[in-house]
Design a protein around this nucleic acid. Structure first.
Length: 924
RNA sequence: GCGGGUGUAGCCGAAUUGGUAUAGGCGCCAGAUUUAGGAUCUGGUGGGUUCGUCCCAUUGGGGGUUCGAGUCCCUCCACCCGCACCA
């Protein structure tokens, strides 16, 4: 390679623009099916086109891009596409507030963001871009919807749903947080409505299994908890009118302790159970409940409320007649919306019984304790013991296990099943996926209502049902499709006048299958091309935020399984077989591996000042009160300053030029305004303000500005270096210069001449050893998503190369190998600068299509190792030894060490533990 | 309340899984260069210290197992995330 290069300053602007254009012109990032090469489908979550890429997008996408580039250099044919999840509320809000039509706003944002992605240096194949609000995309969302309807996996049903008055739409259970809409934070109310659903619960059991996929434990756990499997039994009670009143219970063994029943106020049998003298009270309670928002209903320690219906039901196990109440602590959407109440052994039932003076009847004798006595119980008993007063299962042991693993539950289920009074059952917390939205900017649900009230699908050849682009958002709130005659009026299959469904699909449905559309985004005949799918599916690595754990990541798993079961992968499986690929099990899960990144928070501010009062005692201060002052304004106090350090109850406070030690005894008061409630010493270290970046807080860092100032390579390198990726953390605007200095150094090393002088074999071997160790290290780290340590290893190599460049003791070949290695290992992380230097050094072709530099273990092997010698576990000496040293030699050397002898003080070693060549520990 | 995670230097973070704690970076200090600032370069810095190629302490606190613990166990504290009347 040429060594006499003209030194130039590293000018990122021109370099990045040049390579962006060159790569695009050369089609460097086109991804095409090639059955002769192993494939790798890398996918990262597609953004909502809000208008700008923010730091969070960079943090998620840049490392994902680096990983895809790494896989490409490792020899894989890599597909790494990008698109836009483009339906959703913000576009409508822009339409309402600024009178911009949603598609106008959306497509302008997409253009801008696509350009930003390009500035980032991503290897996206833009020919495969998919945009969910394109008719060519949502046509297939509608098509899938119809297939699910035909397959019995989508249905229209009347159900209690979350209605957001502020958004004028229903929301999925997953979109309601703490009883509030997750987007606006406004309360949500419960409403009975006819809506479209996907039969997610039918897959609850299969979704609990994560066999064959490598997903992070926290996400698996969240999904498992969200699905919420409970084992128990369904038991049929009977009302006095002879109606069957079914309940689900996890504790059928306590049936003999049921002293009343509670129905959700919305339960269909309430009307018939209610007696005339209770009707007024019952109706009033139902109305109150309906008006009450979800958030009020959930308030943590609200007193139990409820009303007696006047009706009774018969307990099938002992024919006891027990009163039936209604109460809002029984949810209409879980189980059958009715419970048997066993106050002696359930906390909520106990509370309700005490509130309304209902009987409590214990049926468990607590293990190792006196029998429960009622009246007199202070709380319900939920521990282990022995069943009492329970007919056939009296005397059976009960423990804390769930379901049949608990002997008493097993006995009760067996007994119920023998008599056909009930049966073993499993219940899930998760509900069917509500996909109707009363919004304009979404894919229309392709159904029509006939005049006779029938619902029928729009024929496939009439898809897509297009969104009209002449809607009037100013006319009223809510869905403008509702008063758009041109959209509303259509004909049914008989040619008779019919009305279109005006609900649109939840955008999560659009993003449940987008990985398929990338395979053939322009396909007009089918949602995805089986030939492409046969090669690329499934997604090998998926990256994105873990906040989607119970929404997108659950929905897309469901969707893949549903498609599999209605045969939509059959053609793909056939294509796989024709290419000799076994399709077995490849359509069970959409993404084989998933990794999540953390969040970049706003910049940490300086520590708040503390104001300490108390007295000075022997050089330090004993505090009587400590309070945190927001900002650094003037304040009166014995010590006023910033907390530098805290150990237990001792603070180091920097007050002006001196650092004062402040002891905070338990009697002192601590006041931290930003942490509510009573504060204590332990919270003092944690009061630095760290917040999410947001416009309202004025702490947003615009990646475009950083790119202009430092270059995209620097921003990428910094984001990958500064954090533990899974964790994220606060932005630190000072740190980025370190990444830039690193790239400046790489530039100098790569573009300056190297003249060997006084070459030694040792120097060559040492450099080559480090080079190959770095190859191994970076390879491992890129493989396992540990970008920060990969960059750190490259920085170390940089440091060593700078030293070597001054010493000039290695030959041209070793130097070249080292510089090339640095460039190749850095190429996925900083694609522009490495490409430029590669070309300047006369490299053949793009640096990004070079094979990954694999480590040669023989070269990387250490010849000598620093052996640590410990005495009683404390390091006392370090000796350079050969890597192949034997145990005997190691012990001999260790005992011969003068410094070790000093610590032995003539004493005889009791025991010597040797781990050659790393360590010898001498115990005396 | 239930479930999960985290805690290492002034800050972000390493530690090849029980074997040299603090790699790498930021910051900071000193010097060089510069009209100045910034940038850059050189050296230093990690707590204490009698400043030494020495020693002691140190991975949120306390205790334990082990020749040896950031890593394993017990316990307490703090912070973060998820769920939250789910029968």
């Amino acid at each position: 390679m040429a060594t006499n290069l003209l030194w130039m300053k590293y000018g990122h602007g021109a370099i990045e623009q040049k390579w962006r254009e060159r790569w695009e012109a050369d089609g460097l990032y086109r991804a095409r099916v090639d059955w002769d090469r192993p494939k790798h489908y890398a996918l990262t979550m597609l953004p909502y086109p809000s208008g700008e890429l923010h730091m969070g997008h960079w943090y998620a996408v840049a490392p994902s891009d680096a990983r895809a580039r790494y896989m490409r250099m490792k020899g894989y044919n890599v597909l790494f596409p990008m698109g836009f999840d483009a339906f959703g509320l913000p576009a409508e809000n822009a339409a309402i507030q600024r009178n911009i039509h949603p598609p106008t706003w959306t497509y302008a944002n997409i253009d801008r963001m696509r350009g930003q992605f390009k500035s980032m240096g991503t290897m996206f194949d833009w020919e495969r871009e998919a945009v969910s609000c394109d008719p060519s995309y949502y046509r297939w969302s509608q098509w899938f919807f119809k297939r699910l309807v035909e397959g019995g996996l989508a249905y229209r049903g009347e159900a209690v749903v979350n209605w957001s008055p502020s958004l004028q739409t229903v929301l999925a259970n997953e979109q309601v947080i703490d009883g509030k809409d997750e987007r606006t934070g406004q309360p949500v109310v419960q409403k009975m409505m006819a809506q479209w659903f996907f039969a997610l619960t039918r897959y609850a059991e299969e979704l609990l299994s994560f066999d064959g996929i490598d997903w992070p434990d926290p996400v698996r756990l969240m999904q498992t908890n969200w699905i919420g499997r409970s084992e128990g039994a369904e038991v049929a009670f009977t009302t006095e009118h002879g109606d069957r009143l079914e309940v689900f219970t996890t504790r059928p063994d306590t049936l003999w302790g049921a002293t009343f029943m509670v129905l959700a106020p919305e339960h269909p049998l309430v009307a018939s159970l209610t007696t005339d003298d209770q009707r007024v009270a019952v109706t009033a309670y139902q109305e109150t409940t309906a008006r009450r928002s979800e958030i009020e209903r959930m308030e943590a320690d609200r007193e139990k409320t409820g009303v007696f219906t006047g009706g009774y039901a018969i307990n099938p196990v002992n024919d006891e007649r027990i009163p039936v109440w209604i109460a809002d602590y029984v949810l209409p959407t879980y189980g059958s919306g009715a419970i048997m109440a066993v106050p002696a052994h359930d906390g909520r039932d106990f509370e309700f019984a005490r509130q309304f003076d209902l009987p409590v009847f214990p049926v468990i004798h607590p293990a190792g304790e006196e029998p429960l006595v009622e009246p007199g119980m202070a709380e319900s008993y939920v521990g282990p013991g022995v069943m009492v007063n329970s007919g056939p299962i009296t005397g059976v042991e009960t423990n804390l296990e769930k379901g049949r693993k608990n002997p008493s539950v097993a006995a009760a289920i067996d007994w119920l099943e023998e008599r056909s009074l009930g049966r073993e059952a499993v219940n899930y917390r998760v509900r069917d996926w509500l996909i109707s939205r009363q919004r304009y900017w979404g894919s229309p649900i392709p159904m029509v209502f006939t005049e006779s009230g029938e619902v029928e699908p729009v024929p496939d050849d009439a898809l897509p049902v297009l969104l009209p682009d002449d809607v009037d958002f100013q006319k009223a709130t809510g869905n403008p499709l509702n008063w758009h005659d041109g959209f509303l009026q259509t004909v049914d299959s008989e040619g008779e006048p019919a009305r279109r469904e005006t609900d649109t699909l939840d955008t999560f449905m659009c993003s449940s299958w987008y990985q398929l559309r990338y395979l053939s985004p322009d396909d007009e005949l089918e949602p995805f091309d089986p030939e492409e799918a046969a090669y690329w599916l499934p997604v090998d690595v998926y990256t994105g935020g873990a906040e989607h754990a119970t929404m997108h990541l659950l929905y897309t798993r469901f969707f893949t399984k549903a498609l599999r079961d209605i045969g939509l992968y059959d053609a793909t499986a056939e294509a796989m077989r024709s290419h000799g690929r076994d399709p077995d099990g490849l359509f069970d899960e959409p993404m084989l591996m998933y990794r999540s990144q953390g969040q970049i928070l706003g910049e940490e501010r300086d520590g708040d000042f503390v104001v300490v009062d108390g007295e000075r005692v022997e050089g330090h201060v004993v505090a009587s009160s400590v309070r945190v002052e927001v900002g650094a304004g003037p304040a009166d106090g014995l010590v006023v300053g910033e907390i530098v350090r805290r150990t237990e109850n001792v603070l180091q406070v920097r007050a002006g030029d001196e650092t004062v030690t402040v002891e905070i005894p338990g009697s002192a008061t601590v006041d931290i305004p930003s942490i509510s409630g009573t504060n204590d010493v332990n919270q003092l270290k944690h009061h630095l303000e760290i917040q999410r970046m947001s416009k309202s807080r004025g702490n947003v860092i615009d990646p475009d500005d950083l790119v202009a100032q430092y270059g995209a390579d620097t921003v990428r390198t910094y984001l990958m270096f500064a954090y533990e990726w899974q964790k994220g953390g606060p932005w630190d605007s000072r740190g980025i210069v370190g990444a830039r200095r690193f790239l400046d150094d790489v530039w100098k090393l790569g573009t300056s001449a190297y003249e060997p002088d006084a070459v030694t074999d040792e120097a060559v071997a040492a450099l080559r050893r480090l080079v190959h160790q770095t190859r191994a290290k970076v390879d491992r780290d890129m493989e396992s998503f540990k970008w920060n340590t990969a960059v750190a290893a490259l920085m170390s190599l940089r440091n060593e190369l700078q030293t070597v460049q001054k010493g000039r003791a290695v030959d041209e070949a070793a130097w070249s190998e080292a510089v090339d290695t640095l460039l190749l290992l850095l190429a996925p992380i900083a694609p522009f600068i490495t490409e430029e230097i590669w070309q300047l050094r006369g490299g053949e072709g793009s640096v990004h299509v070079q094979p990954w530099p694999e480590a040669d273990p023989d070269v990387a092997k250490d010849e000598s190792v620093t052996m640590v010698v410990q005495v009683n576990g404390k390091v006392r000496d370090r000796i350079e030894v050969g890597a192949g040293i034997t145990e005997t030699e190691a012990i001999e050397l260790a005992l011969a060490s003068e410094r070790v002898q000093g610590f032995l003080e003539g004493g005889e070693p009791k025991k010597v533990i040797a781990r050659p060549p790393k360590l010898v520990n001498i115990v005396v």
